[in-house]
Design a binder for these strands. Structure first.
Lengths: 161, 161
DNA sequence: GCATACTGGACTAAGATAGTCCCATATAGA
DNA sequence: TCTATATGGGACTATCTTAGTCCAGTATGC
């Protein structure tokens, strides 16, 4: 149920790896794709592909050329699981009709649509409360999440697209 | 992100349709696959396939032969979204390694696994709080859901496999 | 016996996913 | 300026999953 793709899982591992390299980066050392592949034990071509993808987003910054590499573009605590999924899987919903601009020909006869959308918002909310920092060092408990879709958030967070 | 398959969506529509037929059923009329297809505007072969699948679970009961058909086996309020996903998509997690009996060769180098499992439990919890009755008549607000994985539930619910 | 309706399973086409590879381009340093 | 080291963009393929259809078998009511 509700599976994320392997690539998204790998991408998260990569981000966690980058998050763990904060000090080294501040000292001027960037992480190359090979570094990340070695650190995560993922295949190099796969890591290269994912880093390219991540570098196009605002989560990861890249520097080309010799001595180049990748760094997190933002603090781990300001990158949420929802951000990561948006970049790696696109901003789609749990059903096609739970994305914003969809037209479903079953709309008239479908009584369920609205409910999926609420569930979808709830899950997005949940994922927005979990940061890369949490993923790198999982806390005892994750915060409460509100499935009602009301505005209030437990913590203020950089809004995700 | 986190998409459910179309068939699961259709299956849910079918269940909602059956839930709406409670009175007719008590009067002795079962819903045939054709009835459901007409009521939901889904293609008949697809409906047949899904009803077969649902009838193998404990969510739907079937009666063969002329005048046969399908009924919900339990009250709509005791069937949760998690139950539905389990039947239609199998009891899998958002990552392969978030299912119970998996062996991931990256386990040593993967720092993320535990966190996905918590997220997974949180989402399952959320889905366990939403019933078929809610889906048929969506309430204003869905209940709060706890991502921490602690025991307490807002409502007592038939446990899902 | 026949019409109705479920049961089990095979089957296909289309699409998504995972993974690899190649060539172009940028940069640091010798 | 040349070379080694990196990223950037994209093509490509094999495999798996999904959606959808169809058929032969079986149970039941009339």
């Amino acid at each position: 149920m509700l599976r994320i793709s392997k690539l998204t899982d790998y991408g998260t591992m990569i981000l966690v790896h980058l998050a763990g390299r904060g000090r080294a980066v501040r000292a001027g050392h960037l992480c190359s794709a090979s570094d990340v592949a070695a650190g995560t034990r993922l295949a190099l071509p796969t890591v290269q592909k994912l880093l390219k993808l991540l570098a196009r987003s605002d989560l990861v910054r890249s520097v080309r050329g010799a001595e180049g590499g990748y760094v997190l573009a933002r603090a781990p605590a300001s990158i949420t699981a929802a951000d990561i999924l948006d970049v790696l899987e696109g901003p789609v919903g749990i059903t096609e009709c739970s994305t914003a601009d969809s037209h479903c020909e079953l709309e008239d006869s479908c009584q369920v649509g609205g409910a999926w959308q609420k569930i979808n918002r709830g899950i997005r909310g949940a994922l927005s409360e979990i940061t890369l920092a949490d993923l790198a060092h999982p806390p005892r408990e994750f915060p409460l999440v509100d499935l009602s879709g009301r505005a209030g958030r437990i913590r203020q967070r950089v809004p995700s697209a």
